[in-house]
Computed example of a mutant assay.
Amino acid sequence: MAATTSVLIGAVLTSGIAVASPSGPTGTRTVQGSNATAAAATSRAASPISVRTLEAVTLRAEPTTGSAALGVLGKGVKLLAYEGAVRGNYKACGKSGNKWERVGKEGTGIKGWVVSSCLKYPWS
């Protein structure tokens, strides 16, 4: 799979979102663990969940801290969560974790992965 890279050059922050256009191909990706075992994933494509960011969080191309940063979502941004994945370890928003959400901003075409510890769910 070809790597996708993004650069934030002169990015404009609008409605709490700074976005960069990817310089490589985009599309559906299969999430796999680094040791050839598939990462656990939960799909909610049929009925996505409405979530909000708890603070500014990096939107990434893949559910890992080492993947390309696509932009920064500001605090309080409303998103739809389509799919969850368990992959690697991170520390974000004052918590350690390994859960990610594939999210999108309705009506904008903005999609990517964020750490789940930085999201407010309807049940939390």
Rank of each mutant, 00 (worst) to 15 (best):
A92M: 07
A18I: 02
A56E: 08
M1G: 14
V72C: 00
V115L: 04
R44C: 01
R29T: 08
A85P: 01
V72Y: 03
S23N: 12
S21W: 03
G74Q: 08
K91W: 10
S15W: 00
L59N: 06
W100L: 11
W123V: 09
G66T: 12
R102P: 01
P48W: 02
S96W: 05
E83D: 13
V72K: 07
A41S: 14
Y121E: 12
N89Y: 13
A20H: 02
E83K: 14
G66S: 14
L59V: 06
G10A: 09
G24M: 05
T4P: 01
K111M: 06
R102Q: 13
I9M: 04
V51S: 00
L13P: 00
A18F: 01
G10L: 02
T14S: 15
G74N: 08
A45R: 08
W113V: 09
A45P: 00
G24W: 03
G107N: 13
L119S: 07
V77F: 10
V77D: 10
S96N: 15
Y121P: 00
A45N: 10
E106V: 12
R102K: 13
A18G: 07
R60T: 04
S96E: 13
G107A: 14
K95S: 15
P63M: 10
K120Y: 02
T64H: 10
S50W: 00
L73R: 06
Y90W: 11
S23Y: 04
G97R: 11
E101I: 01
S21T: 11
S23H: 06
